[in-house]
Design a protein around this nucleic acid. Structure first.
Lengths: 160, 160
DNA sequence: TGACAATGATTAGCTGGCTAACTATAATGA
DNA sequence: TCATTATAGTTAGCCAGCTAATCATTGTCA
């Protein structure tokens, strides 16, 4: 979370420029806005998902499972795709399992592996959440028209 | 942190569209990119600051103090500007104080208040960090030229 | 083949946020 | 005036990430 409410204004930055002549004003502005907006959105998302008793970490795990044809995956695959450590996935899976949103089963051919399966209950939860999520997102982005959104996506893709 | 490495591609999203017809493709794409890029940047920033033995929370506190003419502020002002709770600022200040980067003093006229002052050591730390930070930021943003950065800032400002 | 490396998963313990509950002081208004 | 409300700050305890260490199993190559 990086919610810095008072982004530096021109005056504040120009005070810094005095001391740090290598400051590129627009880069810093863009950087701060990206980090701040990302944090604002993430906080709002967690608030929305909280209404369904879930966090964004657990929600993404469920989505990754649903994306899969047979709705199953290895924990280590989930970790890689989700961008978290295996330790974190281990905890997420334990919770999701105890809540009945996923099930686990072992792999015969390789006993180290551990298959995670989305349950009916997990799928139902996603079916409840997703419409609200899509509404939430289109509401957040509604101050940009379609063309502006396309431009934004292109610019962000250059950075990612 | 929201680092979802595998953003949904067209195929994945179109599978979801089947089930959730109110999905606005471009809004979701833009939303995910903002949150993801913000998280990536935040993680990199923390790695950079870690080289100076500091976190982004403590760093922002120091910057907010330096921005002030007399380099001093109330904890509650810091909390508001930084976008964290008073409880969090309380912890940050305790740490920064124990490390010698700030000092505290009490306010005569209102004994509830508690003045935080940037020390020479804190200012020196910032003077060390900022050039590296500016280089770091301009490097992150270098795949966009100046005009593109301006466009990006305008779009993000519409959303913030 | 058998030692060592690689892989998959878990656990323990850390950290930086948070909320809720609290203390102390100041401001307000019947 | 004095009871109530508001403000400033702290503490305790929660949570979701993390790293490092560990265990079990599988793969590799001299």
């Amino acid at each position: 979370m990086f919610l810095l409410n008072d982004l530096p204004n021109d005056k504040a930055l120009s005070n810094f420029v005095k001391d740090f002549p290598n400051l590129e004003f627009t880069s810093v502005s863009a950087f701060l806005r990206i980090v701040r907006l990302g944090s604002i959105y993430l906080e709002k998302l967690d608030k929305l998902l909280g209404q369904y008793g879930i966090t964004h970490g657990r929600w993404i795990t469920l989505i990754l499972l649903k994306r899969q044809k047979n709705s199953q995956k290895l924990p280590s695959e989930l970790a890689k795709q989700q961008g978290v450590t295996k330790a974190t996935i281990s905890g997420l899976i334990k919770l999701l399992n105890s809540e009945g949103y996923i099930e686990r089963s072992s792999n015969q051919s390789d006993k180290r592996k551990n298959i995670v399966i989305l349950t009916k209950k997990g799928d139902d939860l996603l079916n409840n959440i997703m419409p609200a999520y899509y509404e939430f997102v289109s509401d957040l982005l509604k101050s940009l028209n379609h063309d502006e959104q396309e431009v934004l996506i292109k610019l962000l893709d250059k950075l990612i």
